[in-house]
Design a protein around this nucleic acid. Sequence first.
DNA 1: CACTGCCGCGACGCGTGG
DNA 2: CCACGCGTCGCGGCAGTG
Length: 431
Amino acid sequence: MFHQQDHLKSHLPDSHTASRQLFHCQECGKQYNTQLGYRRHLVAAHSASAGLPGSEGPPSLLEHLGSHIDRPPPSEGNNNTAVPVRERKYSCERCDRRFYTRKDVRRHAVVHTGRRDFLCPRCAQRFGRRDHLTRHLKKSHAQESGLMPPCTPSTPVATPTPAPQCPVKEEPSPVVSDMGSVSKEPMEPFSRDMYNSYPMTNAVPGMGHPHGLMQGSLSSSMGVARHMPPQSSHHHHLQPPVASQQQQQQPYSNMARYQHGSTSYPRADVDSFLLDLQSVPPPHLSAVNSSTSTSASPQREVLGEGVGAASDPHLLSRSPAISSTELSCTTNMDLGPLLGFLPFSLPPYSPHMGMGGLVMSYPPATTTSPPSSSSGLSSQAPGPFTFFQPSQAHVPQGPGAHNHSQLPQAYSSPAMSTASSLPHYYQAFQQ
DNA sequence: CACTGCCGCGACGCGTGG
DNA sequence: CCACGCGTCGCGGCAGTG
């Protein structure tokens, strides 16, 4: 709703076209989707330094951040302070940032890897940390889920999936490349190594790198379907100058909007996409996984199967039986792009998802539920969808059954076999 | 020591009032 | 067109637990 016409005008170009202008900070190279954002940045980050010396050129974002972080805290300023100085003895190999604890360093690694293994089952947003996903769910989907924040143990678990988290192991997220641009140096080598195991963009088309997705189905389903008038669909292919440059790293056409700090896809876009998705028969999903997840990307194995697969995620993920059920639904549509995309970026937006393994119980009310069904997806989709599955490990539980014990296997892939038993963070380091 | 989750801060996108 | 305020996300610090 826009009360003024000019508001609508300004809204449209900004929010629904890929061709919108990007604002580039000359000093640090950061990009902004909005002029406001750019201005704020200038004020906050460079107003003071405008006249200051010291800028030896545009520092990378990480370096820039590091400069702040490494700066001794106020109390630390003086060595003579009564308060014992706490030192950050653990430093990041990739950016020299220092942390108080080792675990902080590990967690920090996500910044470099750009990995976002935690996928929101409800909106396809991805997060690099579990707690971020938790927070997101609580804040953004609390009411939707109606029940509660999925994460809460209190959740009545019809389905053994208390945890909404769906670690999607594997896949370099769009952010990664973004990160690379931001933190030039440290990032480069690292990310490369990091993703050796999973070829980034083109190597494995089937993998459905998010980018690919964006270009293909996603873009079409997203912008075109709802936000954009049919004629404007071409916007998705337009590249902002900056974006084009990035495109090498990130195949997405729309990348520009999605990168930059926040990985989150514009909600509106996501919503529309999801809606679109709903309109599409779920079957494609199944098709996808068979083609992509299992074969194309071994790594991206299923995490854990939802309820059905609970007993044996592995089986589920590859189970022919399952696929057969899925196949029954398959259509002839060329879902390649979409499929590829799905696993990484979007969960099938349907109630089914929830049922399957997601921790959260979605309101059954979801209007458009593809016929195929509820039982279907959750149980059947071993493929990409499994990503959405809650690591059922959480559920049943016992102390023994815990993420780490089960998920890893699920994740395991030839390439990452060693990582399988490792915690998420460790996996991030796997090379 | 590892892992998880909460908290606070800073930053950005977006909608809206002036 | 500009500026403000809100909502959300990224990130680091840190406490709790096993």
